Simulated scan of single mutants.
Amino acid sequence: MSQKQRMLAGDLYTADDPEIAADAARAAAWMARYNASLAWDAADRHALLAEGLGQVGEGAVVRPPFHCDYGTNIHLGARVFLNFGCVILDVVRVEIGAGAQIGPGVQILTADHPRDPVLRARGLEYGRPIRIGANVWIGGGALILPGVTIGEDAIIGAGSVVTRDVPPGITVMGNPARPRVR
């Protein structure tokens, strides 16, 4: 397997591989264009968004500035909204369901690192996919960690650190994020 194939499969890989570095460079050039598009017509910005991401549903909006590793592993459903300053580290697939609303400064992080210091010292890393269901609301500044699935209609409180799966319809908050007690 190539390093890129290993990355996409969630296996250990090295990010300094030439093929992966070329993909990152392409994404950086695209982000420079996209992040300069705030004053553009919405249709033109949506077309540019579709050029850089894996899938962009109808009516999806991502307010610049926006940052990602590759873009091609990000899949947005219809009417998804990402506010200013979101970061998605998409070394593997990130799915965001229709109608999800994501506040400013949210970080969605699929990239992870081995716990073994010898493997980390060799520059190895891996990714775990993130799935965010339809109609989810994620408050500003939240962190979504590798491998998390957030069920439909869930709410993530602002500033929360989501370390494990969130069932559908549940509100979580805090660090680590826990279900809200009424």
Rank of each mutant, 00 (worst) to 15 (best):
P114G: 03
L89T: 13
A121P: 00
P117G: 02
I88K: 12
G123Y: 02
G77R: 11
P114K: 01
E95V: 11
V80E: 06
R120K: 13
N83F: 08
V87I: 15
N83A: 14
L89I: 12
V92W: 09
Q101L: 14
L109M: 12
T110E: 03
G105V: 10
F81A: 10
D90A: 00
R79S: 13
R122G: 01
D116K: 07
D90I: 03
G85S: 04
A98F: 08
R120A: 12
D90M: 00
F84I: 04
R93N: 05
L119K: 13
N83V: 06
D116T: 10
V91S: 09
Q107I: 08
P114I: 02
T110Q: 04
I88N: 12
L109N: 08
F84L: 07
I108A: 02
T110S: 03
L119W: 09
H113Y: 14
G103H: 06
V106C: 07
N83R: 07
C86W: 07
H113K: 04
V118C: 03
A98Y: 11
R120I: 01
I108W: 08
R120F: 13
V87F: 14
I102W: 10
V106N: 03
R93D: 14
I88Q: 10
Q107M: 13
D112T: 11
A121K: 09
D112F: 10
V92N: 06
G85L: 06
G99H: 06
P117C: 00
